[in-house]
Write a protein that binds this DNA or RNA. Structure first.
Length: 218
DNA sequence: AAAACGGGGGC
DNA sequence: GCCCCAGTTTT
């Protein structure tokens, strides 16, 4: 994919993702404007399939949906609510630790800058960028493995790590696409342009794609 | 039964 | 950069 193809690809992508109702990322999108829910949802989704984190986070938020109230929960309560996301002890402990810091040092509010977000254990660039963009509506690019894989598969960027992809996209992706690329590409990556067996033969973006790193395809 | 999945931390 | 982290889902 060449730079001048961006508008065409984004339009085709928007059309393509419409065939998958209630995409998994919508679960996270529904947290829009609520940085705390975005943050907790992201912690739950670490190294798990996104589909499972929606119901799990709903159960947790039914018990508590602010740092102060969630801090009052026991680790066992949190662990029980978030089945079946896995990594229960780590995730429950990290969430409660973040709640404690938010209450004690940040007046119960989630900070809106990269530096402070990254200081929390369990928060990396993907989570921080999602909090900044979805939670606070500020500019940012959230690169998960889907975004990283697909942008490289297209040949739009040539990078080795998601962080490099983030910086490459920040430098070249037109600003009007920053807030939608993650939503589109995650949906697209989960349903069509999958890691192992992308459906290249039925892909509307075929003529724009370099298929870099594609080993098998149907 | 086995392989795929997926962000972050520690070194 | 490399290795590790645990448990659910898919093949």
């Amino acid at each position: 994919m060449r730079d001048e193809d961006v508008d065409d690809v984004m339009a085709l992508l928007a059309e393509a993702v419409r065939q998958w109702p209630s995409p998994a990322v919508t679960i996270v999108s529904q947290r829009e404007g609520n940085p705390f829910k975005v943050l907790v949802s992201c912690i739950l989704s670490l190294r798990t399939q996104d589909r499972t984190t929606g119901p799990a986070s709903e159960r947790l938020f039914a018990l508590a949906d602010t740092p102060a109230t969630m801090l009052a929960l026991s680790r066992e309560q949190v662990e029980g609510a978030i089945y079946p996301v896995g990594f229960y002890r780590n995730k429950a402990a990290q969430i409660l630790e973040i709640c404690r810091i938010l209450v004690e040092q940040y007046d119960g509010r989630v900070p809106d800058d990269m530096g402070r977000l990254l200081s929390f254990r369990g928060v990396g660039r993907k989570t921080a960028n999602l909090v900044i963009t979805l939670g606070f509506g500020k500019p940012g690019i959230c690169v998960d493995t889907h975004v990283h894989r697909i942008c490289n598969r297209w040949g739009y960027v040539r990078t080795g790590t998601p962080e490099q992809t983030e910086f490459a996209l920040r430098a070249k992706l037109p600003g009007q696409y920053w807030l939608v690329i993650n939503d589109y590409l995650v949906t697209f990556g989960q349903n069509h342009c999958t890691p192992l067996s992308p459906r290249c033969s039925t892909c509307v973006l075929g003529r724009f794609c370099d298929r870099i790193g594609v080993t098998k395809h149907r």
